[in-house]
Structures are given as C-alpha cells and as structure tokens.
Amino acid sequence: MATEPSHDPHPFVGMWVTADGHIRQELLPDGRYDEARGTRRSAYTGSYTVTGDHIDYLDDTGFTATGDVRDGVLYHEHLVLHREDPDAPDRGRKR
C-alpha cells in the first residue's frame, strides 16, 4: 500500500521579525520569501532553499544571502529574527 507524501510545510515557513518589528521576512511554503522593511512592503522578494538549518536566498534582482536557524532564532546576514507571535499586536502591518 502506497503512502501519501507529506504536504506539511517546512518548519521554517512563516513570518520572522526583528525585535523592533522593522524587518518582517515571510518564508512561504512554495520556496519564495517576501521581506518588508518599515512601511516598504515587498522590499525584497525571491526564492530560498533550506539545507538542514541553513537557508540560501536568491533575490529576484540576483543577489544572494544566507541564514541559519539556531535555537529557534533566524540569523540572516546581520539580522536576528524571531518567529512572529501570532498573539502579538499587528505592529502596523497592512493585511
């Protein structure tokens, strides 16, 4: 009997945010990301791949970046991002 493949999203999928809420990076289940900075929505967009706890980013403009998740914290280049608390205030984000 064949088993159905898992369609659960990768554990890193979701919204990651800096402590001050200025930078918000959403890792989407389709391997794309969308990063907002302050009031600038979609400041950076592109694709990402995950290998273990390491993330490789390829921005739509062609530049690359990396990140690593350690102890539930995303270290993305010089940024430190935490999972967004779904019960936290909206921080002014437009939906």
Rank of each mutant, 00 (worst) to 15 (best):
T49K: 05
D56L: 04
G21E: 00
E84V: 15
R41W: 00
G72D: 04
F12K: 02
D68N: 14
D87L: 13
P89K: 04
D20T: 09
V50T: 07
D34P: 01
A65I: 06
L27Q: 02
R37F: 03
T61N: 12
K94Q: 12
Y44K: 04
H10S: 04
L81I: 11
I55C: 03
A88L: 08
L79K: 09
Y57Q: 02
T49V: 14
H22T: 14
R37T: 13
G62T: 14
I23Q: 08
P89E: 12
G52K: 12
F12V: 15
Y57L: 01
Y57G: 01
E4W: 00
V69G: 04
G92W: 02
G67K: 01
P89F: 03
T51R: 13
V80L: 12
Q25N: 12
T18M: 11
D71V: 11
L28H: 11
A36G: 10
L74W: 14
D56Y: 02
R41Y: 00
I23A: 05
R91C: 06
V13G: 01
V17A: 07
Y75G: 06
S42C: 05
D20V: 12
T61V: 15
P11E: 10
Y44R: 15
T3M: 11
G92R: 05
D68I: 13
R24Q: 13
P86K: 11
D53Q: 13
L74F: 14
H78G: 10
H76R: 15
M1E: 08
D71F: 02
L58W: 00
H82F: 09
H78N: 15
Y33E: 00
H82C: 09
A19M: 04
E77G: 05
G52C: 11
D56S: 13
